[in-house]
Nucleic acid binder design. Structure first.
Length: 367
RNA sequence: CCGGCGGUGGCGGAGCGGUCAAUCGCAUCAGACUGUAAAUCUGACGGGCUUGUCCCUGCGUAGGUUCGAAUCCUACCCGCCGGACCA
């Protein structure tokens, strides 16, 4: 694969790559490149993580970058998820979570053996460099900036938090440097951490990121955040933005990788999906990011009485048809539900087996 | 540790001695309307059933006062704010 193709693959369907110009330099270096994505062990794996993030992970793997999934148990603890109990979180991380991400990767056609999992607490154990880097990052970042950055934990800016939460961004940034990762991949919501990483990159004493003698900044790759299935609400633009994201805490706004066929159908059926409207329309969003990310062409079935089947060769064609009113929400929904049922079959089957099933049930008992 | 304020249903938030299972808003669920959803309207929304001017549980926890307490008193726990301490 030539460099141009690599750059295209890494950049495709992302919200942004900071800075895209630096990709060419990196790929031309002929050194092993390392990718990182940190994930909190916050609950069941939904399609945002399982399919969108993992698709990008696969893009990295496909261009020959070594991919690392950082199971952020400490961060999860700080963020009070799963009862804020570190031992429980660890167990779920190396059990359910690892299992789930692997099988999600498989759904996308990847080989789970390519995934390198790192448990945060293992990584931190007896790791002076990491803790020194935490302090190093902190010394190069102001308190107010850290306070603003708590949005990466899903907290409202300016909200009340315990002090540990202010440690979180510094730890996340330190993960990148202490691990020596060239690519910091995350959802767009994690932008603040990655921007801090780039801002402090030239000032770190303990573990600057280097190629040869040259200090480089980690390249931030931010993937799209899938829209939730419920109607976005809120007065301010900001509220609107947050309310439309898929969220584990809103049970029916998300589909989980192991949801049953009936659940998938039920959730899609009750999904917000205004006719002719393609902005803020979750079903349209899903078609773009979950389906056209992997299909050259799709055929949508439609009752002959409504005019017969459709064939679309790219998202733009579908979008145009939908906007015109030609493609009806119900036909689109049926297609998406059917597609997801097939795509997720390996995950569903896997979590029907006794061991994984037990892991899932243990997790559900905690929520 | 001291002081102030506060802890009510999934959430927000009324009530401040009886008529309180607790106004109201949101969320949720069901139905009507649309080839989906949304919006709108109707109903349900602590639990139970024999569905009733029925029973049980209930307003941070434990006691107390009172014929009667979510409402008053005491202690304790938790949260926020301020202060004190600071080798």
């Amino acid at each position: 694969m030539d460099i141009k193709e690599k750059i295209n693959l890494i950049s495709r369907l992302t919200e942004e790559v900071i800075e895209k110009d630096e990709l060419e330099f990196l790929f031309s270096q002929n050194i092993p490149l390392k990718h990182y994505i940190g994930l909190e062990i916050s609950g069941k794996i939904h399609l945002g993580t399982g399919l969108v993030c993992m698709q990008k992970v696969k893009d990295f793997a496909d261009v020959g970058v070594k991919v690392h999934i950082f199971l952020a148990d400490y961060h999860t603890w700080i963020n009070d998820k799963l009862n804020g109990d570190l031992e429980t979180i660890k167990k779920i991380a190396v059990g359910y979570f690892k299992e789930g991400l692997s099988v999600a990767y498989k759904c996308l056609g990847g080989n789970p053996k390519d995934l390198n999992f790192i448990l945060a607490s293992d990584f931190y154990h007896n790791n002076d460099i990491f803790w020194q880097t935490v302090i190093d990052v902190s010394k190069n970042t102001s308190l107010s900036r850290m306070q603003r950055s708590i949005t990466i934990l899903g907290k409202k800016e300016g909200g009340e938090v315990d002090f540990a939460k202010l440690l979180y961004p510094a730890m996340q940034v330190a993960d990148i440097f202490a691990g020596g990762f060239h690519f910091s991949h995350a959802g767009l919501d994690q932008r603040k951490a990655n921007v801090i990483a780039r801002d402090v990159a030239n000032h770190l004493k303990f573990s600057p990121l280097k190629i040869g003698d040259k200090i480089i900044k980690p390249i931030a790759v931010h993937n799209h955040l899938l829209l939730g299935l419920s109607k976005p609400t809120g007065d301010s633009e900001e509220d609107l933005q947050t309310s439309m994201k898929m969220s584990k805490s809103k049970p029916d706004s998300a589909i989980f990788i192991h949801d049953s066929e009936d659940e998938i159908i039920r959730k899609i059926k009750k999904a917000y999906c205004p006719e002719k409207e393609t902005e803020l329309n979750p079903i349209i969003d899903w078609v773009k990011y979950l389906i056209f990310s992997r299909e050259e062409k799709i055929v949508i079935e439609r009752n002959p009485e409504h005019g017969g089947n459709f064939e679309f060769r790219n998202f733009e064609e579908l979008e145009k048809s939908y906007k015109s009113g030609e493609l009806h929400p119900v036909d689109l929904k049926n297609f998406v539900a059917g597609y997801l049922i097939e795509l997720l079959r390996p995950a569903r089957d896997h979590f029907a087996k006794s061991e994984p099933k037990k892991m899932l049930e243990e997790l559900e008992a905690l929520m």
